[in-house]
Design a protein around this nucleic acid. Sequence first.
DNA 1: GAACTATATCTTGAGATCGAGATTCATGAT
DNA 2: ATCATGAATCTCGATCTCAAGATATAGTTC
Lengths: 179, 179
Amino acid sequence: MQETLCQQTLYTDHMEDEVDRLVAAWRRERPDLDVEPLEVLSRVSRLARHLDRARRLAFSEHQLEPWEFDVLTSLRRAGAPYQLSPGQLLTQTLVTSGTMTNRIDRLTKKGLVERLPDPSDRRGVLVRLTPEGRDRADEALAGLLAQERAILAQLSRPQRAELAALLRRLTAPFDNVPG
Amino acid sequence: MQETLCQQTLYTDHMEDEVDRLVAAWRRERPDLDVEPLEVLSRVSRLARHLDRARRLAFSEHQLEPWEFDVLTSLRRAGAPYQLSPGQLLTQTLVTSGTMTNRIDRLTKKGLVERLPDPSDRRGVLVRLTPEGRDRADEALAGLLAQERAILAQLSRPQRAELAALLRRLTAPFDNVPG
DNA sequence: GAACTATATCTTGAGATCGAGATTCATGAT
DNA sequence: ATCATGAATCTCGATCTCAAGATATAGTTC
């Protein structure tokens, strides 16, 4: 079973992508450099951009922007009463504090979240999902999962698990240190 | 050798990351949904954002922004005479045409690229790297590769190859169809 | 309990991106 | 030749993001 997995992955399906062309170009132009790192990390960056575009399309059916989705779902999965501090939202969405203030302002105007004073820390604020915000998040999530499933159909289930495990080893250092 | 690879990957090093927490939260809040796709694609998106931040830092030593690096290196690896059409730059950098026009304007002002009329198509333009642009690209690339190597040190060489192959299967459909 | 240091959030201004539409030229059919 | 269609690039306005600094409050040490 594991051998099958590896053989599949390592030896079949050599359809080229832009990164193959990019790496080949570097090897021609700069044969003195080892560009192996690009094989992984350029693919990550490019795939993320493709995903952004696809998500923007998927969400437009629900009149949601990707950034709105990110904030609303962070609150949604926090569980009832669906509230987090702006600081917690920062670590989930990986944007700066100025950006988050702006996002909360706009979502408040749209009636999808509301700001409450933090009862235990007068410096702080809590952002809470409104019932409408919760519904919008749930709808959009279902759509996103359908789209992502289609993209991942290129891989078998064990391949997806393998991929997730390899990626985790790269993300964990970022997520677990001050970063 | 392959068995070793798989065993390592599948069974060791279970340091958690934000996506593990995110997936656990969804399974608690929405046990009716299958959120397995997030294990892969949320990691891709988040890792890309971490990489963006790291790149911005690495490039600041060379007074380059990530977007400048992307354009300059696209031209650099095209080989002498280091020129491409704006359209070719679009497919490499995955931005819109308005963005690319703006980028070329700014790089021209900085003296890193220049615009030439396309001799074979009077609608078209060619963007050419200046000698200084070429040097800046080469310097920054070396720095980037060093940084990326450090990030990838979490994985063995065969694991990196495996990861690249799995990612290729996801990027290839985007890169090879109209998209 | 006063002074410091650290934390949480917000404000601001500059810059970058996007989408839609306009412009200019190429290509192919009639 | 003329027209229609399509392609390549640019223009423009709105929006989004970031970085740096400002403000207010919490802890901590003496």
